[in-house]
Design a binder for these strands. Structure first.
Lengths: 140, 140
DNA sequence: ATCCTGATTTTGACAAAGTCCAAATCTTGA
DNA sequence: TCAAGATTTGGACTTTGTCAAAATCAGGAT
């Protein structure tokens, strides 16, 4: 993220230490959970309440400044890479998450066309697998 | 589901009233939540503990007899349509869920190929949108 | 048909991830 | 510098699900 402060102002959000810290934490740690964001933010500004972390993450998500992803069996994760339609690759065993550029973003199966009368606005793809590190470890 | 009892036996699962009731509930109500399954099962057999509902749903899922889907902002949902690679269409507003046959199941973007060294075993797709009923209602 | 053994069910406590609310504090614009 | 409205905080609470121990049940052997 270029300039967190400018980003906040552009979206008419008062600039606070908490918001800057959370925004930078998300920027530094793509796919971090709220908990991890809180930890990272605390390293920067000393202290921030759990509720504020959620408040900030929610408002940033609502404004489209960050994106929330919610894979099964994982708390929500956040990233500041927004505006493209990239997808995710998640390790079933440890939760490690990687970005994946959709090779054929406009393939028929991913195009938001009408089905059952729904107005479709997004096709979300999650690739499930096992990361290199977990492939080594004995399967528990 | 053809014969719930036979299905249980085929998987070496002792047949119990609770398992039959849960299995039939999932069959009758595709995409039902654990809570909805419990309600439906109770209509059939009078009473079943919350824990048993979870026990049964978990064992059936582990055996591959039913499938669990976990869309963002929704409790887990269950369906007995397994073995094909169909995807889901979910209403952002009310959670209504529909099955979607992937038009191009083997499109490059959905093929489980290697990325970042991960061993990929599944590509999960969720289409997000607004269902017909919610398109009518005023947007709150 | 009855009994034994291991599996299943039940009950109640517990855990994780978030949200709600009211009071205190801070940002911003005048 | 100040007031007004927005943000932050702390604590209680909710939802969804799991853990553990005791009670009960299913299925095979007698």
């Amino acid at each position: 993220m270029r300039d967190p402060e400018a980003t906040l102002r552009q979206h008419d959000l008062p600039v606070t230490a908490q918001r800057l810290a959370v925004l930078r934490a998300v920027s530094r740690h793509p796919h971090a959970t709220a908990d991890a964001v809180a930890e990272s933010a605390r390293e920067e500004i000393g202290t921030i309440s759990r509720q504020s972390v959620y408040n900030v993450l929610n408002v940033l998500t609502d404004k489209g400044i960050i994106r929330r992803i919610q894979p099964a069996d994982s708390p929500a994760r956040y990233e500041d890479r927004v505006g493209d339609n990239h997808h995710h690759l998640v390790c079933r065993s440890c939760g490690k998450t990687e970005d994946v550029c959709c090779a054929v973003g406009d393939a028929p199966c991913l195009t938001a066309h009408s089905h059952h009368g729904f107005k479709i606005d997004e096709a979300e793809v999650i690739y499930w697998g096992t990361c290199p590190a977990c492939q080594q470890k004995p399967r528990n």
